[in-house]
Design a protein around this nucleic acid. Sequence first.
DNA 1: AGTCATTGCTTGAGAGTTAAACTATCAAGG
DNA 2: CCTTGATAGTTTAACTCTCAAGCAATGACT
Lengths: 173, 173
Amino acid sequence: MDPASAPAPAPGPEPRWLDDSERHLWLTYLQATTLLEDHLDRQLQRDAGMPHLYYAILVHLSQAPRRRLRMTQLAKNLKITRSRLSHAAARLEQRGWMVREDCPSDKRGQFAVLSEDGREVLRRSAPGHVGAVRQALFDRLSPGQQKSLGEIMEIIAEGLQPDEADADLPWLR
Amino acid sequence: MDPASAPAPAPGPEPRWLDDSERHLWLTYLQATTLLEDHLDRQLQRDAGMPHLYYAILVHLSQAPRRRLRMTQLAKNLKITRSRLSHAAARLEQRGWMVREDCPSDKRGQFAVLSEDGREVLRRSAPGHVGAVRQALFDRLSPGQQKSLGEIMEIIAEGLQPDEADADLPWLR
DNA sequence: AGTCATTGCTTGAGAGTTAAACTATCAAGG
DNA sequence: CCTTGATAGTTTAACTCTCAAGCAATGACT
């Protein structure tokens, strides 16, 4: 079956355009997400001396079992590329906030491990950051809106995951 | 209901921590927005040879009265810094997709003007991009969810506008 | 005319990101 | 053993973004 049963010669040359309300929603989405990301980036840079991503990395490590995660797993959790994580890890290691340890069972593997200094910097900066998130987001949305936002973001994320079902079993046809 | 289970004395040093559902919403928000932004960035880089921001710049210009906007106004529309726009404009000008023209009434001013090549590259890449946005966002959300998302994003953006919200200056006066 | 703060925009350097290439290891078969 | 192909992670170079500093024109005030 064709994905689109259009009588066009080329693969669907004219997609449905965005109508006014869709265009407005999309514009607002872009503005809000840029504003929020920039706001938090600045807040963290100012108060903790690191960009948002680095903070997120430390948080994820701090919540992991022995405060350690394999690089690839960490990248997956954060939805970033391994390359990006690799660079960030180098920086974080330079600052003494994490270390990389060899994985005994797989010599290719590396564990990213939150250091004591890393825990400390998190302890110091977490309250301010949580405050910023709360002030920018949670304090402004009703419980119902929070629920909606959660469902919506879940749907968006779901649609963009490198499909695990296929990715896990590419050799099955 | 007990939003804050800790007997926090005041909104001073210890901010209300995020509870489980808030933490989950925040995590999902971050993942969804990164996934979507990365997805569109890649889509545009692949199909149009430019990052999402550059595309957004061209779109805004194409919708402006004589396909031109003052730099500062354009930066405000896009919620980015003038510096960032300046660098991007240099790139776009290099590629021949826009030009800068002096403002006759204010010799400091510059107009960013969409060039004919710029219109052309937009014409070519817009359908694919709109398709990507539709597929990732609009096709997955019910009308009600779209309405909710619009309201929510409006609220978030409103709270972060640097302009009118100078309400937070308790240290002054 | 002369100062002086402000506005509009650009620049340079350093930090961060990206895609693609690269090293090393693993695992399955021959 | 020795291939072959996948996986784990890093690295390179090109690009983009940020921040702070800079310059020139403007406007207000003298």
